[in-house]
């Protein structure tokens, strides 16, 4: 693509990533959570793939990494949701309101869910772009 588009995306991509990670991490304080945050990260990656070509974007997230990370995060997610009685010591809500470490269950689930959404959507977008 153009030089202008490439320069702009080079400049703006870290901020998109930052905003996506911010939305995921503050899911228990502001509206958002894992689904919008994960989508924002994938939007940033799609912009890089469109501007610089698929090869360069694939160097950021490789396909094997996506599969394995998705599996591991799903593993943790299932264990926390289905077996919450065993995790009460970590998950008991402590801390003041509006701290980052206040609602632990929601924070942990948002992080795992966010990584899972990112990997799933990245897989779909890269596969559709290979066509």
């Amino acid at each position: 693509m153009d030089v202008i588009v490439r320069t702009m995306i080079k400049g703006i991509f870290p901020f998109i990533l930052l905003f996506g990670v911010y939305t995921i991490m503050h899911g228990h304080l502001t509206p958002g959570g894992s689904f919008p945050g994960g989508t924002m990260i994938v939007v940033g990656l799609t912009l890089v793939a469109l501007a610089f070509g698929l090869k360069k974007a694939e160097r950021i997230i490789k396909e094997e990494t996506a599969h394995i990370l998705e599996g591991i995060m799903a593993f943790f997610l299932i264990f926390i949701v289905l077996f919450e009685t065993f995790f009460r010591s970590i998950l008991a809500p402590t801390g003041m309101i509006f701290n980052l470490w206040s609602a632990q269950q929601i924070l942990l689930l948002n992080i795992f869910g966010g990584i899972m959404v990112t990997m799933a959507l990245t897989m779909i977008v890269f596969l559709l772009m290979k066509e």
Binding site: H67, I68, E70, G71, A74, F75, I78, F79, L82, F83
Partner: peptide, 18 residues
């Protein structure tokens, strides 16, 4: 019943990876 469900969920993810 969560034992049965979690075994099935884990099997679904593990078959893909392993």
């Amino acid at each position: 019943i969560t034992i049965a469900i979690s075994v099935l969920f884990l099997a679904a993810f593990l078959v893909l990876v392993l």
